[in-house]
Design a protein around this nucleic acid. Structure first.
Lengths: 334, 334
DNA sequence: CTGTTAGCGCGTTCAA
DNA sequence: TTGAACGCGCTAACAG
């Protein structure tokens, strides 16, 4: 086994309590003994047993990050942001993936009632309809911060982007380029982000007097999505504009268009929500709505730590909306 | 606080020991009492305190995953693989990012000497030259499995792709298309994957009698990489083939080519290591070497769990090479 | 300034 | 089949 406080105590002829205090730099220990303790600790490479400490202090210095998946560039970047502030604050990060399954999400959340983590960062799954499982842990004194995909009915902090505005801006961009039939591609009707983005889309359609609209729901499978999209594009009254509300729809859209020999942006104009670097180099070019994923991760984590560390910090008051960016890229060919 | 064994014991007029045994389904407890215990546990939503249990059992049911970053599609997919087998086996996953810093990697590894985790999955940083920090934890009885980016001198399990072969195949692909000057774009000379890929590249050059070669080292910044690549492409004796050994070089290459009005694959043929879905829809098309990232994550995790759970399982004997795939995509325009 | 004592919640003796 | 007692390693209260 590794070296423990007892070992240090014996070697220095001190009590374990003294060592413990010295190690936490307590003011009730003389500088000299502190010095001796530090030196021996370093020499023997002493590292405190985190679980003993957690048990005693009732705090684990650990947070949980619950995500649908890390396939997507948004969540990848967000993890980087979360991890960087966690490390800075001396916290450890447990990662859990729901794979968009509600059942799995419930099972995961249930494990947080036992004090494994001091706080939770969550972006709910596509299937999540009820939020009881979250309320339950939230009310059992473990702080929860929502992040991107939220449950509005849980009274706690939320860090989101301006989904309504970005849905509006995306649609507006297409409308201003002369699109007359703009469709909205989605993956889940229940998701908060989707609801707001779609409302923005509807508002823009209205403002620009566009009557022809349609919402198409896709799934999580590339092939199926490709087929779904292809069917839509084969219709007699084909859309001339597409708002892709999530990143994973880009590939099937491009494939379907190529297959059907539809030219972007000649026949169909396209805009997608994504943080992919390769959006820069797609040809035909892809206009995008980019979310500040890294920043969002950092912000959400920062708020969570406040909720954990500040005694009476009211998380339910926090609702941070971070603006997304519209990047218009026009063709060099047409 | 949450409900504990004591609470169950009181309500059932049993001792804590009996409850504990019943919950672990011990054979020395009668079926009837087990039944009663289970029922009450479920009713009160009892979840054992993981830290008390870890302290007592000297096992945390937790593994650490140490990665450079999750920017890249390879690591994103790998995390999914790792998490899925971890969950299946009832393990928790702590994630740590080195951000390609050796110092950070050492600091992280140092924390694993205290029994926080039962095992470690690691893909080393670009800066990692020595492996003492890994040997140290590995020899202190915590199993380590390398994964993609390995340290050859540490005697433990390694899960990798056929880097030599894929470097060879990539170069061969360009050579067979008639390239006469093929350059290799890299990010770090020290990385194991890079060494092997480059050896494959060199071997292919030799086999195809290509004399003109060059290796260009890039960094982690999109802009800088763009400039570096642009300079190379501006030379009088411009390369006519590029092997991009990591995903993040794709974007700067495309940008530089566009800027210089170099046509892919007319002027320059390109092949890159990547798992990006959007590689499918890049135009001009991008041929790729794809690593089975999800599978690798699963495999690495599976081996790690064997090392953790099987008493005398010799990790140092394990070296699993998973084949990557060459996907050739040709232009529809030229 | 330092030491003694008493748990944190759980699992494992050993005795009944 | 059950229970009492101890200890995992650490920290906090209270004495000295």
């Amino acid at each position: 086994m590794s070296v423990k406080i007892r070992d240090l105590a014996k070697q220095l002829n001190l009590s374990v309590a003294t060592i413990s205090k010295a190690l936490t730099d307590s003011h009730e220990i003389s500088p000299e003994t502190k010095q001796r303790v530090f030196e021996l600790a370093k020499k023997l490479n002493y590292t405190p047993n985190p679980y003993a400490s957690s048990l005693r202090k009732r705090s684990s210095k650990t947070i949980a990050v619950v995500l649908p998946e890390v396939a997507d560039s948004f969540f990848s970047l967000a993890i980087n942001g979360i991890e960087s502030v966690a490390r800075e604050k001396g916290y450890h990060v447990l990662i859990y993936l729901t794979h968009e399954s509600f059942e799995r999400e419930k099972a995961i959340l249930n494990e947080f009632k036992s004090g494994r983590v001091d706080g939770i960062l969550i972006s709910v799954s596509e299937e999540t309809t009820s939020s009881d499982h979250i309320k339950e842990v939230s009310s059992s004194a473990v702080p929860v911060v929502f992040f991107d995909r939220v449950c509005e009915d849980v009274k706690t902090a939320k860090v989101i982007t301006d989904d309504f505005e970005s849905g509006y801006k995306a649609t507006q961009h297409l409308a201003e380029q002369g699109c007359k039939k703009i469709i909205y591609l989605s993956v889940s009707a229940d998701l908060s982000i989707n609801k707001y983005r779609m409302e923005g889309y509807r508002k823009a359609l209205k403002d620009y007097g566009i009557k022809e609209a349609d919402t198409v729901y896709c799934g999580n499978n590339l092939d199926e999505n490709y087929h779904t999209i292809k069917e839509v594009l084969k219709k007699k009254k084909r859309p001339d504009g597409i708002v892709a509300s999530v990143e994973k729809l880009i590939t099937p859209i491009y494939i379907a268009c190529k297959e059907l020999k539809l030219i972007i942006p000649g026949d169909i104009k396209l805009i997608s929500f994504t943080n992919l670097q390769t959006a820069l180099i797609l040809d035909p070019p892809l206009s995008t709505i980019t979310q500040p994923a890294f920043e969002m991760g950092k912000t959400a984590a920062t708020i969570l730590f406040k909720g954990i560390e500040k005694e009476n910090f009211d998380l339910s008051k926090e609702r941070i909306v971070i603006p997304s960016e519209l990047a218009v890229r026009s063709s060099t060919r047409n």
